[in-house]
Amino acid sequence: MSSSGIEPESPDLVCQLDNVQGVVDALTSVRWKKQQHAVLELSEHGIVLIVEETACLQAKVYLQRELFVKYEYSAEGRPRFGVSLGLFVDCLNTFSVQGHSSAIEIRYPGPDMQLLLKSVESSDSCTYAEIRTRIPDTISWDYNFEPAGSTPLSFTVKSAALKEAIDDLEWPGSSIYLILQPSPPSVTFRGEGHGDLQIDFMCHANTDLLVAFHCDRQVSHRYKYKFLRATTSNIPSSVIRDNRGSKLTIGRGGMLKVQHLVSVAKPAIPHPHVDSSGYQQPSRIAYIEFFVKPEVDDADNANDT
């Protein structure tokens, strides 16, 4: 980390964002409980926000530099700092209600290592925030996601359908089996707890739901329901509205990766009655990744053949 505390004139990062709501949406999607610590990592490529829980679940939000109207990065190495996720999102949220334009400038570090936010619209009104940062206490556990063999085990499903399936599995609760099998090509979620519930996505029957499917052998892994639920509980409404898909991949040892795409496009005309869905810059997407560790016991190990 550079010693910018002494030279406030040359901060590590000064960037400008013209769609705060998009970033609020992206960050909200990894907010699965009230008190969460997040680590922000800055680089020349953009900002990565990482949250995790009890070494079983990790989520990352990638805000690439293309999402920003201005991105001036001048640090050596990759500065990392901790913030309260809830506070950061609530704070960003206050900037997104400024009416017409909601462009803001983000700067790090401030004179006291704060994260500084400032609206950049008019000279007669200004909103600002200083968020205290922490030295991240733990090196975040490296999830080291590796493919589980030569061919990938993955499928892409409409985000809305995925969310609905996982919401429905709340009833059996506790542990959920995720089973992929090549013939007939299908994805199965099965919950056993207070009762049994099985949800099948059949590849041939649901071509509009299951967009892609890669699987050359049957696999079955078990995941804690509350972690699976965290991956979809706060999917932004824009993802559902845009009819996007989410990609799920099973890696070595049964590690599950869930990926969502959240649009951070500049709102065309901020008018509720005008359909602004026309043109969206293709690169203005925030990538969300969740990594869920499987529940492991001997029976499960035998399953991964």
Partner: peptide, 12 residues
């Protein structure tokens, strides 16, 4: 608060 300062100024 100890963690955050958030403000808005309206002028003229």
């Amino acid at each position: 608060t100890t963690l955050i300062t958030l403000g808005a100024e309206f002028r003229k």
